[in-house]
Simulated assay, not measured.
Amino acid sequence: MARMKKLSPVDALGPAFRRAREVMAAPFRLGFFLKIALVAALTQPGFYSVIISYPVQGVQAAAGAAIRHRAVMNFSGVDGLAFAGPAAAAGFVILTIVLLIGLLVWVLATYLFCRLRFVLFDLVVYRQGKVREAWSKYGRQTWRYFGVVLLASLAFLVLLAATAGPFFVHMLKMAARIGAQGTHANPLSMLGAMLPFFGIALLVGLAWMLVDAILQDFVLPPIAIEDAPIEGAFGRLLALIREDFGSFVVYLLLRFVVALGISWTLMVVVFLILAVGGMGGLAVGFGLYRAMWHGGIGLQVVFVAIVAAMALVLIGVYLVAMVAVYGTVAVFKQSYAVYFFGSRYARLGDLLEPPEEEMVGVRIEPPLPPLPPLNEPPPVW
Rank of each mutant, 00 (worst) to 15 (best):
V258P: 09
K333D: 12
Y289G: 15
I262W: 01
L252M: 14
K333F: 12
A308V: 02
Y289D: 12
G296R: 04
V301Q: 07
M292C: 06
R344N: 05
G296L: 03
A324G: 09
L299D: 03
L312H: 01
A291S: 14
L266R: 02
K333C: 08
L319E: 04
A305Y: 00
M322T: 10
V301R: 04
F286R: 09
V301P: 00
L312E: 00
V250S: 09
G327Q: 03
L260Y: 06
A309F: 00
T328W: 03
L260Q: 13
V329A: 08
L252T: 11
L272D: 12
L260V: 10
V276C: 04
V323G: 03
T265K: 07
M310S: 06
A337M: 07
F340M: 06
V307D: 01
L274E: 08
S335T: 06
A321P: 05
V270D: 15
M310R: 01
G261D: 12
F341H: 13
I306Y: 00
G287A: 13
I297C: 10
V323P: 08
G295F: 01
G278P: 07
F340I: 13
A305P: 01
L260S: 15
F341Y: 15
F286K: 08
A330P: 04
Y326R: 05
F271T: 13
R344I: 10
Y289V: 12
T328P: 01
G287L: 11
F271Y: 13
Y289E: 14
A309R: 00
K333I: 11
L252R: 14
R344Y: 09
S343E: 07
V317L: 13
G342M: 05
L254F: 11
G327V: 09
M267R: 12
M310I: 02
A309C: 13
A311T: 05
V284Y: 00
G261F: 09
A308N: 03
V320N: 06
L252Q: 15
M267F: 07
V304I: 12
M322I: 04
L319W: 04
Q300C: 03
S343G: 06
G285R: 05
S263G: 15
V307G: 03
V258Y: 07
V317C: 04
I297W: 10
V257S: 08
V257A: 14
I262D: 06
V304W: 10
V257M: 07
L314N: 09
I297L: 15
